[in-house]
C-alpha cells in the first residue's frame, strides 16, 4: 500500500470518528440531562450547558428511593407490584401477538384462500385508528367482561392492536424466505407442517424476535389506554406510575427522571440480550447469505 493512500485512510478515519463523536454527543445529551436530574437533590439543579453535577455533594439517590419506595415496605411492595404488572403485561402481549400472528402470517404468505385479500385489508384498516379512538368502547367492553383493572384485560387490548401489525411484519418475513426451502424439505421427506416447523420457522426466527420486541415495547410504553382502563394503583403499569410525578401545578422532575431510568433499564437489557437476533432481523431481506 502506498504512503499516500495510507495518509488518505488515516484522514478518513479521523473524519469518521469526529462525525461519530458529534452523533454520540447529539444522542446522549438529553440522556445526560435525565441522569443528572435523577441524581440531583429535591428542587433540582439550575440549567447549565454541560449537565454534570458540580461535586459529590450534589449527587444523591433520593429520587430513586422515592420512586421505589425504599425504606417504606408498603410503598416498595406497591412499586414491585407495578413493575411486575408492566413485565407481565408486556411479555404476555408479545407472546400472544407472536403466537397468533406467526401461523396467520405464514398462511397469508403461502396459501391462497377465500377472504385472503379482504382479510389483509381489514387488518390494515385496524391499524389506521389510534388506540385512543377506541378507548371508550374498550372501556365498556372490558367493564362488561369484568376485566377492568386486570392485567389480562390490558393484554387483550394490547394484543388486539399488536397482532395485525405483527401479521404484516411476519408475512413480509415469510414472503422473503424462498419457497424453494420448504419445497426442498418436502422432497426430502417433510410434511407441509414439518416444512413449516423445521425450515420456515427457524428461517424466520430473527424476524419473529424483532416482532416480539416491538410488541413488547409498544405494551411497555403504552400510557393512554393503561391510564384509562386501570383505576386501582396496584394495577398500574409503570408509564401510569411515572405520569403521577408530573403534577398539575408542580412536577417532581427528579423523581420523574429516576422513574424514566428505571423504566428504560429492562428495555435496554432486552435489546442487549437480543442484539444479534435483532441485527440479522432488521437487515433480513436486504442481503441474503
Amino acid at each position: 500500500m502506498s504512503a499516500r493512500s495510507k495518509r488518505g485512510s488515516a484522514l478518513e478515519a479521523v473524519l469518521v470518528h469526529a462525525l461519530l463523536l458529534v452523533a454520540v454527543v447529539y444522542a446522549l445529551y438529553p440522556v445526560l440531562w435525565v441522569v443528572t436530574l435523577a441524581l440531583s437533590k429535591a428542587g433540582g439543579i439550575e440549567p447549565r450547558v454541560i449537565p454534570v453535577p458540580h461535586g459529590a455533594d450534589e449527587i444523591t439517590l433520593d429520587n430513586f428511593r422515592l420512586v421505589t419506595g425504599a425504606g417504606d415496605p408498603e410503598r416498595s411492595w406497591l412499586f414491585a407490584r407495578q413493575l411486575v404488572n408492566s413485565l407481565v403485561v408486556s411479555f404476555a402481549t408479545a407472546a400472544t401477538a407472536v403466537a397468533i400472528a406467526t401461523p396467520a402470517a405464514y398462511a397469508l404468505a403461502r396459501f391462497e384462500f377465500v377472504g385472503k385479500r379482504s382479510g389483509l385489508r381489514g387488518m390494515l384498516l385496524t391499524q389506521m385508528f389510534p388506540g385512543v379512538a377506541s378507548a371508550v368502547p374498550l372501556y365498556l367492553i372490558l367493564d362488561a367482561l369484568h376485566l377492568l383493572d386486570t392485567r389480562s384485560g390490558l393484554v387483550l387490548v394490547y394484543a388486539a392492536t399488536a397482532v395485525p401489525f405483527a401479521v404484516f411484519q411476519l408475512r413480509g418475513a415469510f414472503l422473503a424466505i424462498p419457497v424453494d426451502l420448504e419445497e426442498a424439505a418436502m422432497v426430502d421427506g417433510a410434511t407441509r407442517t414439518q416444512a413449516f416447523l423445521k425450515v420456515a420457522l427457524p428461517a424466520a426466527r430473527p424476524a419473529i424476535a424483532v416482532t416480539a420486541l416491538f410488541a413488547f415495547m409498544s405494551a411497555w410504553n403504552e400510557f393512554i389506554l393503561a391510564a384509562t382502563l386501570l383505576g386501582r394503583e396496584s394495577a398500574f403499569t409503570l408509564p401510569v406510575v411515572l405520569q403521577s410525578y408530573v403534577g398539575e401545578y408542580s412536577t417532581q422532575w427528579g423523581a420523574f427522571a429516576a422513574g424514566a431510568i428505571l423504566v428504560s433499564v429492562p428495555v435496554m437489557v432486552l435489546f442487549y440480550v437480543a442484539q444479534r437476533q435483532l441485527l440479522s432481523g432488521l437487515t433480513a431481506g436486504g442481503v441474503k447469505g
Binding site: P178, L181, E183, A184, M186, V187, D188, G189, T191, P202
Partner: peptide
C-alpha cells in the same frame, strides 16, 4: 402422492440449502 412419498431427490437452481443448519445437518435432514 405427495413429494415425500415419491423417493426422489432434487437439486434446486437456488440450491435451497437450509440457512439455519450446518452442512452436516443439511445433508442429514432428509
Amino acid at each position: 402422492l405427495p413429494p415425500r412419498d415419491r423417493d426422489v431427490a432434487m437439486v434446486f437452481q437456488s440450491y435451497a440449502l437450509y440457512p439455519h443448519l450446518t452442512v452436516r445437518d443439511n445433508l442429514a435432514f432428509g
